[in-house]
Design a protein around this nucleic acid. Sequence first.
DNA 1: TGGGTTTGATAAACCGGTATAGCTCCTGCA
DNA 2: TGCAGGAGCTATACCGGTTTATCAAACCCA
Lengths: 338, 338
Amino acid sequence: MARPTIADIAIRAGVSKGAVSFALNGRPGVSDATRERILKIAEQMSWRPHSAARALGASRVDSVGMVIARPARTLGVEPFFAHLLSGVQSGLSAESISLQLLIVEDTATEIEVYRRWSSEHRVDGVILVDLTVKDPRIDELKALELPAVVIGGRGGKGALASVWADDRDAMLSIVEYLAALGHRRIAHVAGTPLFQHTVRRIKAVRDAAPRLGLVDAPSLTTDFSDAEGAATTRKLLSQASRPTAIVYDSDVMAVAGLGVAMEMGVSVPGDLSIVAFDDSILTQLMHPALTALSRDTFEFGRQAAEVLLEVIADPTRIINRRTADPVLTVRESTAPPA
Amino acid sequence: MARPTIADIAIRAGVSKGAVSFALNGRPGVSDATRERILKIAEQMSWRPHSAARALGASRVDSVGMVIARPARTLGVEPFFAHLLSGVQSGLSAESISLQLLIVEDTATEIEVYRRWSSEHRVDGVILVDLTVKDPRIDELKALELPAVVIGGRGGKGALASVWADDRDAMLSIVEYLAALGHRRIAHVAGTPLFQHTVRRIKAVRDAAPRLGLVDAPSLTTDFSDAEGAATTRKLLSQASRPTAIVYDSDVMAVAGLGVAMEMGVSVPGDLSIVAFDDSILTQLMHPALTALSRDTFEFGRQAAEVLLEVIADPTRIINRRTADPVLTVRESTAPPA
DNA sequence: TGGGTTTGATAAACCGGTATAGCTCCTGCA
DNA sequence: TGCAGGAGCTATACCGGTTTATCAAACCCA
């Protein structure tokens, strides 16, 4: 018999459907002997609850969603998402909750997806990434009353639950390290100012500059692409007083920047130190290998899943969990200035 | 009112549940006027069918699954999966079918997931990647009677549906191009021989060698990691008669190989030509940029989704769809031998 | 004008679970 | 001896859709 139902088991065990349900869910109402017998039969018939049937009764589908609004082109190279996903799933698998993943082009579509998911009861909650300044998704999700956790941006008061790392401290640790090496001309090739974390990083650099005696500490924004990373590097290195160190907001941009430096005959780390704000295999494949800020992205995802499950269990809770601080992994691309 | 049900609409429209269902699904049984009225009310209340309720009646959940069995570490850098995923979703979104994604460590777990999905009715079908020689997943899926489509390995007789590209022709085009440049010593740094496509590529090189007058054309297998790619390159370049060209089975290994060549003072493309069997932003970030075989991975995924939907609609069909041939994108890493 | 068919609608069953009210014994205690 | 109370189980309603059987009214044609 294909796909046995709870009724089949009931017949086989000579009891009622209700008794089977009690037995399988470990709740009182059946004797130990009967429970034993039912469990054995269920095992034999390799029965599993029909997810839709269960979802219909209880109002929970044991599934959470995650939408990534980025063009696919920039997505693949970022190991960030793969690790994050693995972490999220590791956090969910404990409760055998499944994950719906969707890659879309823009935030408008992303919001559309949330509306659909919510009205179709397809997910119990969602995980948000790439939080922007004045993010429209927040209000939307609150209106939908869909449990959610934000990754990487600390929610303000009355906001959604979040899992975040201290971007400010991380950026400071980089700049302080470079300053300690003797650098005074440090440039920052940032991502898009639409993202909250970009803004925080830029602010961290600006705030630290006077204290560390930096002569100049410009933050130049980009769209996170290798092309803009390269172009910005080219501009920086063409200046009369070029920086002796550049901090990149992503590993891909750092690699692109390294390429430009080599192409312009600027030796790394001799004439220029390079740091990537994000680590991956990419940085290690380079010659010289890049000094980079390593975050435990897997753990990040795992905790996001954990927090989301808590929020789903009790939607009134607002959890803001701070994860382990990222650490600077020093490799071959940084040295004291010439 | 939050989340209206079909009964709410029925009351509001002054008709029965059944009539509403007929109207919303465009089937006969209601007059045009009533249908119009019901549709308008449903629209106003922004009603959407409860996916679980629908899944319970009909036996289809409008959701397909995809399991990737690879350690997360090697996953992120491969833009392959991101593009594939985007393509799959583009193919599914037309029918607004959702995708369940799972990243697991090994094939045993992957099979376990299929069993669970099948018995819980969580997906209507699955998409398989990384087909191995004598793949155990095939028999399992047939036993479960779960519709499936295999990406990248042509199924034999009585096998699952598939979407595939001609690895053999692709490899031949690379080797022929190198031979035409004058290379006679071509090495092949392959992936793991467990994968069917690796075997096909190795065989293509071996078959072509005599015809093209290659002196030596070894295929060395690896685990697809940058580490083994680098180690194998080091071994090849340390030989007395070193190859003048190396073909890598992935872009990551090619990049690692380029690093080794530079480290050993072997100039690329002067002393050594490098070709990557797979293209991505990685190959373009390098200096020199790598000549690579570009596949339309997005389209690959889109077609896989399309075929899967056909197989779900009619499980008796066995579709083997061949996709567009990959093309060789020549960049700076290939030149005639010194 | 009467009988058969079509149209437009309804009530109720069903999908596979969970939750609850209720029933039947059995036990313990006054 | 009688009754309260609990253990163990059954019957049934319910979740929100789809589908089928049924039915009344309108329509058609001889």
